[in-house]
Structures are given as C-alpha cells and as structure tokens.
Design a protein around this nucleic acid. Sequence first.
DNA 1: CTGAAAGCGCTAACAT
DNA 2: ATGTTAGCGCTTTCAG
Lengths: 339, 339
Amino acid sequence: MRSGQVTIKDIAKELGISASTVSRALKDHPDISVKTKEAVNALAKAWNYKPNAVALSLRSSKSNVIGVIIPEIVHHFFSSVISGIEKIAHDAGYNVMIFQSNESFKRELDNAQALLSSRVDGVLVSMSKETKDFDHFRELRSNGIPIVFFDRICNELSSDNVIVDDFAGAFSAVQHLIDTGCKRIAHLSAPQHMLLGQNRQKGYRQALVKNKLPFVEDLVIKCDSFDEAIIKTPDLLNMAEPPDAIFAVNEMTAAGALSVIKKFGLKVPEDISIIGFTDGLVSRVTDPALTTLEQHGHEVGLKATELLVDRIVEGNMDYEPVTKVVKTNLIVRESTKRI
Amino acid sequence: MRSGQVTIKDIAKELGISASTVSRALKDHPDISVKTKEAVNALAKAWNYKPNAVALSLRSSKSNVIGVIIPEIVHHFFSSVISGIEKIAHDAGYNVMIFQSNESFKRELDNAQALLSSRVDGVLVSMSKETKDFDHFRELRSNGIPIVFFDRICNELSSDNVIVDDFAGAFSAVQHLIDTGCKRIAHLSAPQHMLLGQNRQKGYRQALVKNKLPFVEDLVIKCDSFDEAIIKTPDLLNMAEPPDAIFAVNEMTAAGALSVIKKFGLKVPEDISIIGFTDGLVSRVTDPALTTLEQHGHEVGLKATELLVDRIVEGNMDYEPVTKVVKTNLIVRESTKRI
DNA sequence: CTGAAAGCGCTAACAT
DNA sequence: ATGTTAGCGCTTTCAG
C-alpha cells in the first residue's frame, strides 16, 4: 500500500476519473451518476479513506478545533468542566485542544500564541491566578477568535462568561446551617483576591445579616486545603466559645476540618455541623458523608461550549457579551442536622 | 486591517518582495540580505504575524499534535496522566488533543477516526473497559501513526506500553496484609479481560502462594466501583467464614467496602483490614484513612509521552515495542493493622 | 540575493 | 455527468 493515508487523488487515479468527481461523489452531490458514486464509495471504504482534516482546514479557514486554557487539569472541578466541554464539542463536530497554564501567566501567553498559530475556531479560558494583563486575550479576539471565559473570569474584559453562582451557593449553605439550629458559624475561606473567594464570603455574611446573627471576625479564617484545615481547625475548636458549624470553601477543606473535629471527640453534626463547597467524590466517602454544594463543573463546561459554538457559527465578532450563571445546589448528607 | 490573520503574502505585498523571500527571511536563511531580513521581521512583528500551523501541517504532513484517548477525564489517576502528557508534549513542541471514550467502545472507534482525520502525529491510549477488538488501533498504526498505550493496555497487540506495576503492587499490598496477621483475604477485582485486572489478581494469588495461604475462589469478586462495593460487600461479610482483609482494585471500591463494613458494626482494621489500589484524595479522607498503593499517574503520562515523541521523531514504524513499568508504592495509613 | 512555480489535499466556480 | 483550474498558506526546488 501507499505510504501515508489514502487521498482523493489515489482514488481518482485508480478509478480513472478526476479528483473533483471523487470529491463530489463522496459528498453525494446530485450531479454525479449513481454508478460513479457507488464505485467511489466502495473504493473509499475498501481503502479506508479518511478526509484530511488539515487540508479541509486550510481550504475553509475552519479548523473545527476548540482550544481550552485551564489552570490545572488535576482538579475535580476543572476536569469536570473539561468533560463537559469535550461532550458538547464532540457533538458539534469540534475537537478539543487542551492547554494547561499551571497558574503561570507566562505559560498562558505561550498557550495563547499556540492557539493563534493553530488557527483554532474558538477558545475557552479559565484564567491563571497570576493573570492581571489581558492583551493576549484581546489579540485572540482581534484575530476573529471568539473566547468564552469560565469560572475564573475578569470583569475588565467585556466578554462572554460562564460562572458558578458562588454568592447564592454560599448564602444557601449558611442559611441551611441556620435553619438547622446553628448560631455560631465559622467560615474557612479562599484567598480574597479571587472573585470566587470574595463571593463565597459575601454570601456567608449576607446570610448572617439576613438572620440577624453577628459577624464575628475571628470565625473567618483563610484556609482552603485539607492540610491547612488540619492545622487551623484546632484554633477554632479551642476558642472560648467554639463554633457550632463550619462552612468550608471546598470539600477537601471540609474533610480536613471534619477529621480534626472527630479527633477532638466531638460529634458531627450533633456538636458541629459542616458544609463544604464543591461536591466531588470526597464528600461521599467521609464519615459522616458531607453536606455540600454541588458546583456542576460539567454543566459549566456544557454551557460555556454551547455559547462558544454559537459564537463560532454566528461568525460575527460584534456580539453583545453575555454572562451565564450556573446555579449550585445543596446536597444534604449527614454532616448537618435535620430540620 | 485585513480580515483573518496576517499571512506571508500580506507581508510580501507590503514590502514589494516575493512570498518565498519573506519565508526565507523569517527562518533566517543565509541567502537573504540583512536588510531584507530586518524589514521582514519588523513588519512581521508589527503586524503580529503568526505562522499558520494548518498550512505547515499540510505541507509537511506533520501536525505537531498528539492525540489522547482516555476513558474518563474526571478521575484522579487519568487527569494526573493528562497533566504529565501535556507537560512533555508542550516541552517537545506538540499540542494535545483530548478525546474521551467514556468507557464506550463505539465512542473509542469514533475517536480513532477523528484522530486519523486530524492527521495527528502520534496517539496515547488508555482503552475503554468495553474494548475487546483492536482493529481501530491497528488501522492507526498501519497509517503510520505510532501509538503508546498506558495503564489499560492489551497484549494481543504488540505495542509500546507504559504501565503501572500492577503485579508487584498487588503482591506487596497482599504481602502487607499477611505481614500484619491477615489470613483470609478477599479481592474485589477488575474485569479480567483487562490486563490490569489480571495482573492485580495475579499479584494477589502469588502473594497467597508464596505465604502458603489457600486460594479461595469465593473470596474473589468482580467489583470495581463504589456503588458495586456497596452491593457486593455484604455477601462477603455474610459468609460462614468471612474474610479478615479486603484488597480492592481501586480506592473508590475500597471506600465502598469500608462503608459497608462499618455499617455491619465491624471495626477496621481490628476486624477487617482494607487496602485499595490507586491513591487519590479519597483514601486520605475516609475514616479510617485507607492504606493504598500510589499509582504515579503524572509519571505514567511523562513516560508515555516521552516514548511517543521518540517514536514520532524516529519516523520509522518498524520498531521493537517496549513496555515501561512505573513502580507503585505502598502508603500505609489506618485501614491496616500495624506490624 | 531573489523570484517563479509546484505541490501538500481538498473544493467550488467555471467549463464542457 | 464530469473535467479543469485555481487557491487556501507555506516551503522548496529550480532558475535566474
């Protein structure tokens, strides 16, 4: 057999017809005779002909590729998002190219250049923590490549966004704690330079205010990992007036707090209730299983990609940016009291 | 400005020279005068020229893209692997295209076709659980596309593989159980058509043999997910002579078994010890924390991609297949007894 | 030192 | 109903 893959030319030569006839036969063009079509299709099948997507891209200036820049792949939320992206993209006939920024701005720049070179049809981005300059995104746009940001967005750039409703989620979590009788609720929070951290803390405060509970400075601690929770939770429990509930910014932090609380001989949820943002596998397997806020990463991926595909199909870069919000929902398990 | 991105032609026209001169100038070809080079480079920079990777691919029949087919992205092990893949690929100048099979054979076929169409330079595959036919992989290879399989490999296909040392890992896990006094060890196993499943079971048996413990058919159950463990563990515990240890094929299965065992009022590890393959977040947060085998997904990704890039660069499809093994290591936590 | 031409695989306008 | 031609962006002989 010939080296490399079969081309239309190969088929044309074998059948003694022209390449364009083969091309048309393959697309079931009405002009082509049934006989020719049959011959072409048979040979294409026998020889395992696969259209060369590269040639198609070059010709049509459409790569059918969506690029994704993501801070980190090894992360339940982000991998869920990718999974959603991959699904919609695939269904719409797009392939997905993945780039990890590893939270590095420089790397993100590189990725944007690669995306430009690859002539992707559209880009999905969750920004790195370091990113404070957005020219690389503007450059993509000025080259006719639509972008949809998700989760880590920036509001300097008027762009399409898909975000999780952090405020409402945090609010409902804290409301649930209050509804089940908690009065001194601690918050293990994310760094406040991230919008996500701000919004979750705002939701927490708002719920306290609404229920006429005091906001106690000492009950809010920057703490957003399992290991950090192991270190910092004891301080909370050793307070003169310890909390009767903890709202943690993610599930691993909640799991860390839970483990410390149990080591202290306290019962969950009888003595202390716990809720974590972000529902992953972890919350199902702790003992007791954690009440959490489901973050619907998959849905974020779906929504962002649907929006992006729409933008690509429109083909008009003069659109009015849209921000879509994906709701969270509370999953009540065993780490909070029953009403 | 012109619509779409800047091309060599645009630059040539502006400068009143030919496209080939621009091309040569851009690559610092010795024939070109310094003056011309400077002019070209200056304009290229000013206009933000980016070589069109699609055109390059078409011309060179090299896409600089590596395709990855993976059963599921939302999975600690697999996302770790992808992260490793992305790192090496990026360093070697390749982009990464991701395809999820969702454990579906049909989907895997689709993915292979897409890979073929995209003319990727090489492919990394971890097979779906359903896959028992390998023609789609053979087709990739016969089209000159090297493949490296990782983790979920098959030995019907003589191919490059990067695997976790399932046998040795399983052996050491069971040996650890025996060393800590267990004598009736059950095995919650993966399907046996997967090499991974076979090897883990072989390691289990070998450890029994080596320690002169009987192999009991009824103690080996096909069970490889949290939910399945919830259903099947009770059968184990209800046996006339229940096991005193469980070796589970992955951590979620171990977590499921643990949860059932606790519901039965049994103590871990006093009554029953548990070890799970695959160390992820889950094993750290169960109560007691699970003793596990660390699987080094990132390293699997690195090794597999290094190998693949070598194969691509060699450009010769007549190579002698290699199987690389990434060692596991036992992480002793609280679900097994102390020696 | 530079340009013209051909070709990578495919399609579509324009012939016949 | 089919063939010819041109061109997507780029590189690379081959000719000046």
